[in-house]
Amino acid sequence: MLSRTADHLYWMARYTERAENLARMLDVNCRMTLLRQDEDAVRRRWTAMLSTVGQLEPFLAAHGDVSEPAAIQWISFEGSNPGSIQQCFDSARENARAVRGSISTETWETLNTTWLEVRRFRNHPLAAEVSGEFFEWVKFRSHLARGVLGGTMLHDDALKFTQLGAYLERADNTARILDAHLEMLAHQTIKFDDVGDYYDWGALLRSVSAFAIYRKVYRDRITPRRVAELLILHEPMPRSLRHCMSAVQHTLEELANTRSVETQRRAGEVDAMLRYGRIEDVLAQGPRSYLHEFLARTADLGSRIANDFLVSEAT
């Protein structure tokens, strides 16, 4: 397939996945503030979230102080924020539009409808009470896009490039969600082996659809150590780093070309690190340092994939 087409498909999927994960992060923050009205905690939470998505500075420049409604609005719709949910859907649709000939009609119509409908939410500022509806909608548009892709596209390289993009993005996002959570708790010492705060850690699990999964896997109370293990190392957990990077490594092998040998090796290395890693070692290294190293590696893979597959070869 055309390199340019692969590039658009890859980013179409990445942006859709990113929108979903933003909604997940926003959702969990809103739930938490509904539970606890402690103003400091609320501000800390939203500050951590803005910093996770790299928007703390521009946000403060525009608003001066962090407040919940402004933060939600900023991360959901702000035009000057290239990573807002609406901008992600715009970019996903722009990429889809550029390769309309290569995607199924259903895929195009799904992304186009999402793009048309997101405007419906923008115009009334989201109060925490109604925002839940929006986040649910975003998640379901992403579920729908994923299902439509798998259910209507030929399972060839085109689909694989969307999977490559989606899994790499999800791995990155799960790592950031966990990192943001740890950052928010940075003012206290986390005792990883003790039973953690039910609401804090439960909310984190819910944000990655893992609350029921946790119960199923551990059949026990929530400890930070197990949460970290579930999100980082547990293969069957579909949003864990291990699960995502295993899919990335596998997909890369199927897409291999003459230029991609080193990229495959590095993806294999990350996969092995997760496959054979132990949570003891992660905690010993320091979970945030571990996550930062992981994020550096996924960023490296992202730029290598672009070079090997997505940028046109020189003539």
Binding site: M1, L2, R4, T5, R97, V99, R100, G101, S102, T105
Partner: peptide, 15 residues
């Protein structure tokens, strides 16, 4: 895009 998709041929730009 429509015709390329319906014919199953690549839709290309000059680049």
């Amino acid at each position: 895009a429509f015709l390329a998709q319906q014919m199953g041929v690549e839709l290309v730009e000059g680049q």
